[in-house]
Nucleic acid binder design. Structure first.
Length: 186
DNA sequence: TCATCGATCCTC
DNA sequence: AGGATCGATGAG
């Protein structure tokens, strides 16, 4: 593995589906009490902004969605079912309110608990609401570029748990690495 | 202040 | 297939 270093903000300041693709195979790094936890991103979902009825930003600008409407390269973390957290990375230029949800990791280093599914991913990585709004160029919390030479096959499927969103529910905006054993579901 | 809800997970 | 679970959210 090449040395781990944060991708520049320009990486996130692009079309959300492109960013989602490039996040597959990239490495999420979080330093917890001096211990670097590292996972390879193997499953993501793209959320395309205010028009996307499955996206939190479709509710408009509220205290909760403030981070989504901000500049790219920041973490949007929210609580779900009162128990779990979900981690997103904000994409595209400020005001577009797009993001990519990280759904599953392949353990690389210092990961003991399961990382399949957005809630378990956060728990294993030590990510909670305190990371909401954090800059992903932080030395202790960042994403490192994937190996572009590594062959891979990306699968696109409808997103999980958004049946309420009408036409948006069917769009193939969930992406994962074909055959990877750490994806959250078939 | 408080009813409502959920981009989940686990067990049956 | 169904239920647990509970803090945050945002409307009022």
């Amino acid at each position: 593995m090449a040395s781990l270093s944060p991708v520049p903000r320009a990486f996130y300041d692009r079309d959300t589906v492109e960013v989602a693709h490039d996040l597959l195979g990239a490495f999420l790094v979080h330093d917890v009490a001096g211990e670097a936890r590292v996972g390879k991103i193997v499953e993501v979902e793209a959320y395309l902004g205010e028009m996307d009825l499955a996206a939190h930003s479709s509710k408009g600008l509220t205290p909760r969605t403030r981070i989504l409407f901000g500049p790219p390269g920041f973490a949007y973390v929210y609580l779900i079912y009162g128990i779990y957290c979900c981690l997103n990375v904000v994409t595209e230029r400020e005001g577009n309110a797009c993001a990519v949800l990280l759904r599953a990791l392949e353990p690389v280093r210092n990961l003991r608990d399961r990382t399949q599914g957005p809630g378990l991913l956060c728990r294993a990585m030590g990510v909670d609401l305190r990371q909401n709004g954090r800059d992903l160029e932080s030395p202790d919390f960042f994403i490192s570029r994937r190996d572009e030479n590594e062959p891979r096959q990306v699968v696109a499927r409808p997103r999980v748990g958004v049946d309420y969103s009408g036409i948006w529910a069917a769009k193939p905006l969930r992406f994962y690495l074909d055959g990877n054993p750490y994806i959250s579901r078939k």
